[in-house]
Amino acid sequence: MAQIEIRDLGIDYRKPKSNEVFSAVDSVDLSVEKGEFVTIVGSSGCGKSTLLMAVAGLVDLTRGSIEIDGKRVDGPGPDRAVVFQEASLLPWRSVRGNVKFGLEMQRWSGGDLNERAMQMIRLVGLGRFSDYHPHQLSGGMRQRVNIARALAVDPEVLLMDEPFGALDAQTREIMGTELLRIWERSKKTALFVTHDIDEAIFLADKIVVMGRNPGHIKEVITVDLPRPRNEAILDSDAFHELRKRLRAHLAEDMSSMQLVQEVA
């Protein structure tokens, strides 16, 4: 059986100051194998974050179910760790303090917290910066800390919500390559939200394309590019082919968005 089983998932939000409900995600079915790297793409507002937060156990499900290793998700758990879209480091803690934070919350009993944290900080290449505070780091460095904090608790599943969203194209590429290097060593299952097409292909075993109104899965594309991967792959024919397919999907979504605006 797959490691993550999402069945007929639906999530409604209550609209502010009214009793109306808004369906953010509907009828989502998805299975993810152990060790798989799955990327989720789709236009802004199509429910990518909502889906990811549901897997994290941070939003309530309205319909359907999510199981991880056969266990129903009904809240956060030590088998999952999240790298958030928004900055979510504690500004008053150093890099090391932040990486230790997740371990402290989970009452980590696997040895010395400091050592564990330092190990993860070195893994993401920030060994020299362990005493820095978040406001002294660049955006890319901060996201490395976020990744280190998530990896430190040794989750089965790593949930990442546009972790490189705020970075420039070049840094993004470097971070993507780094992430793959780390992931190939740890072999964790990964769900990775992005709206960068190249990033989605470059990282993925499988790409989930989402559409909007309400958020649903349009297609799941398998990526058969060989691993380990490096930047050279971006110029291969297979990559171009996938890129074209994804572009077409997202363009479709954009035009339907315009239609909605015209009607409204």
Binding site: A56, F84, S88, M105
Partner: peptide
């Protein structure tokens, strides 16, 4: 956002109070 990040690591309300709300 900080409170949610703490919850994702299994923080209980008291943890959030002591480690997020108070120092912040």
């Amino acid at each position: 956002d900080l409170a949610r990040a703490a919850r994702s690591f299994g923080a209980r309300p008291l943890d959030i109070f002591l480690r997020v709300a108070l120092p912040g």
